[in-house]
Amino acid sequence: MPKPAAWRLDVETYPFAERVTTRFQDLDPHGHINNVAMAAIFENGRVRFNRNFVHHKVAGQRWLVAAVAIDYVEEAHFPADIVVSTGVGTIGQRSWTLLAGAFQNGGCVATCDATLVISGAEHNRAIGPDLRSALEGLRLREPA
C-alpha cells in the first residue's frame, strides 16, 4: 500500500481542526495508540466536522458512513493530544468524501478517507444546493 500523498501529511492542507485527547486506555501492548482508538479519534473529528452542516439537512434525511479507510503513517502515543484536521474531497449527487489527517507533536500519524451517503425517502436523497455550497467551501484540492 503506498503512503498517502505528501500534501495529505501537511496540517495546513485542511480547513477544519479538532483537538482530541488521547487516553491511557487507547494504548496497545506496544505502548502506542491502537487501531480501534485511532478509528474512534477520526470518528470524533468527522462528527465534529459534520455538525457544522446539520442545519443543511432535509427533513427525513440521514447521513450514513458508507466506507472508511485509514492509513497509518507513524505511531501515535499517549498522553499527547491528536489534532484531527478535515476537509471535503469528492462531492457526488448523494455522497461526499471527507479527507482527514491526524497530527501529533507536529507530524502526521495517520490519514482517513470516509465516504458519507444520504439516505431517506427517494425524493430527498440528493445533496441540496445549500449543503453542496457549504461542502464546496471546505473542499480540498490536490496542489498542482
Rank of each mutant, 00 (worst) to 15 (best):
V47H: 02
I33G: 02
L98F: 00
I82Y: 02
R48F: 04
S119L: 13
H32E: 06
N35A: 12
G45W: 09
A102V: 11
W63T: 06
A80V: 04
N50M: 15
G101W: 07
E43L: 09
H55Q: 14
A66H: 09
V73T: 08
H56F: 14
H55R: 14
A37G: 05
A114K: 04
N44W: 02
T86G: 00
T97L: 05
A76W: 02
Q93A: 14
P129E: 15
C112N: 15
G101H: 06
G87E: 06
N124D: 07
V65G: 01
V68E: 11
V88R: 03
W96A: 09
N34L: 03
V88T: 12
S95F: 04
V36Y: 00
R51Y: 12
N35R: 00
V47Y: 01
T115K: 13
K57C: 12
G101L: 11
G106T: 11
G87K: 06
V109Q: 05
A76E: 06
A102P: 01
S133Y: 05
M38T: 02
L131Q: 05
F78H: 12
I82K: 01
V73D: 02
P129A: 14
R51Q: 15
A67W: 03
D71F: 04
A110W: 07
A80Q: 14
D81F: 10
R94L: 01
D113H: 08
N50E: 06
N105L: 13
R46S: 14
I82D: 06
G128I: 03
G31W: 09
H55L: 11
Y72Q: 10
T115R: 13
L99T: 07
A67V: 03
A40L: 14
I82L: 10
V47F: 03
I127V: 15
T86F: 01
Q93E: 13
G128C: 15
L131F: 08
A37H: 08
G106I: 11
C108W: 09
F103K: 09
G89P: 09
V84F: 05
F42I: 06
L64W: 00
V109Y: 03
E43T: 11
G92R: 07
I118V: 14
G106C: 05
V54P: 00
G107R: 15
C108Q: 07
A114W: 01
N44C: 13
A67Q: 14
N50F: 13
G89H: 10
I127Q: 03
L64F: 11
H123K: 12
W63K: 05
T97P: 00
R132T: 13
I118S: 01
T115H: 01
F53T: 09
R51M: 14
N124P: 03
H32L: 09
N35G: 10
I118K: 05
V84R: 03
S95I: 02
R48L: 13
I91H: 00
A121W: 03
N34K: 00
H56D: 13
V88S: 06
T115G: 02
H55A: 15
G89E: 11
K57V: 02
F49E: 09
I127G: 02
N52T: 10
P129V: 12
V54Q: 08
H77K: 09
F103V: 08
L99C: 10
H32T: 07
F49D: 05
N52L: 15
W63S: 07
H123Y: 05
F42H: 14
D71S: 14
L98P: 04
L116V: 15
T97A: 10
D71R: 12
V36H: 02
V58R: 12
N50W: 14
I118R: 05
W96M: 12
G107T: 14
S95W: 01
R125S: 02
L116R: 05
